[in-house]
Amino acid sequence: MSGVVTLEAAAWEHIVTATVWHLLHSVELSDLVGSRIYPSYAVQQGHFKAKSPLILYEMTDYQHEHDLDGAAGVALATIQFDVMSNSHSEAIAVANALKAELQGYSDMLHSRDAFNVWLENQSEASEQPDPGSDVTIYVQTLIFNVLHRETSPMLLLPYDLGSKQVEKGIVTYLLSQPSLSAIDNRLFPLRRPQRSELPAIVYRRKSTTEDLDLEGGIDIVQPVFEFEIISDNHAEVYLLSEHLRNVLDGLTGAIGETNTLTVTMLGESEACELQGAGKQTAYYRLTQEYEFMHRN
């Protein structure tokens, strides 16, 4: 499986890869699939072998709970697992082993504290990898929800800035974070230069809502910023997404001498694209959205 991302030790911090780590250490699953548990993009990169049962995984949703004080320290990740085999009975056996390992689980997933894991849905399908071929691939799809504890949100005062300089303050703040040192200074507005190194983060203002006070002046401003983490290493994207969330979600601070800033994560999604026609190298992208609410 050369060319498929090998997860390094640090990348197990993300709840998805922490769950994968747990599955890789299951004796029953190992007897059936060995270590063949890969990101879903492995199929797109041409690494799937029909004779080998395997499991593909993908994060389909990630909800971070908030209360009146900001991030609540609890999150719900939705992970889809696709069991693929050229034997229907084998696909079912692997799916049953996967379900037995995760359904109702409430303990540590590597270094992450899982409160509860439950199966949301299970379905099956079949596909032909080559038109006209007699080879059939059987797919068992299992969708699990993983309710888990998150790192406590940070509390600090970022920078003494006017309310119209929030974007500048975000960039300065993020580039000063040691946990994001892997991007160096590669934090770009709107688009990444084509020849720039990876990993990188692209940010853009997605929307801005302004609430008026009783006199018609702008009181509360709620800009939403989107951060797109880009790498050619799937594990690195997961790791950087966890570090970005740790320094932004629940952040509170001051803008100038009187106005306050509160940051709330709104959502997270991932995608993949091949670097060119016929190529197997891919760019992995994970996008997070945050609301930066502050007084004007």
Rank of each mutant, 00 (worst) to 15 (best):
M1H: 12
V4F: 11
V4P: 09
V5C: 07
V5S: 13
V5F: 11
L7E: 12
E8R: 10
E8A: 11
E8G: 14
A9M: 02
W12P: 09
I15A: 07
H25W: 04
V27L: 06
D31Y: 01
D31F: 05
L32G: 06
L32I: 05
S40F: 10
Y41D: 13
A42R: 03
V43C: 12
Q44S: 11
Q45S: 06
G46P: 07
F48R: 12
F48K: 00
K49Q: 15
K49A: 11
K51N: 12
P53W: 09
Y57Q: 02
E58Y: 08
M59G: 11
M59S: 11
Y62K: 06
H66T: 10
D67T: 08
L68A: 13
A75P: 05
A75G: 08
A77W: 00
D82M: 04
D82A: 10
S85V: 06
S85C: 01
A93S: 09
V94M: 03
V94L: 03
A95V: 04
K99H: 07
G104F: 04
S106G: 02
S111Q: 11
D113F: 04
N116E: 13
W118Y: 12
L119G: 08
E120G: 10
E120D: 13
Q122R: 15
A125L: 12
A125T: 15
S126Y: 15
D130H: 12
P131K: 10
G132M: 06
D134K: 15
D134A: 14
D134E: 14
V135E: 15
T136W: 09
T136K: 08
I137P: 07
Q140K: 14
T141Y: 11
L142G: 00
I143H: 10
N145H: 14
H148R: 08
H148S: 10
S152M: 13
L157D: 15
D160G: 08
D160Y: 14
L161N: 09
L161C: 07
L161P: 05
S163T: 11
K164P: 01
V166S: 00
I170W: 00
Q177H: 05
S179I: 06
L180M: 01
S181L: 02
A182Y: 03
N185T: 11
L187W: 04
L187G: 00
Q194F: 07
S196I: 04
L198I: 12
A200L: 09
K206Y: 10
K206T: 14
K206Q: 15
E210C: 02
D213M: 03
D213C: 04
I220V: 15
P223H: 05
F225R: 04
S231P: 05
H234C: 08
A235G: 13
A235V: 00
L244K: 00
L251Q: 03
A254K: 15
I255F: 09
E257M: 08
E257P: 11
T258I: 14
T260N: 14
T260F: 14
L266P: 06
E268Y: 01
E268D: 12
C272T: 15
C272D: 13
E273Y: 03
Q275E: 15
A282L: 03
A282I: 02
Y284S: 09
L286R: 14
Q288D: 08
M293Q: 12
N296Y: 07
N296T: 07
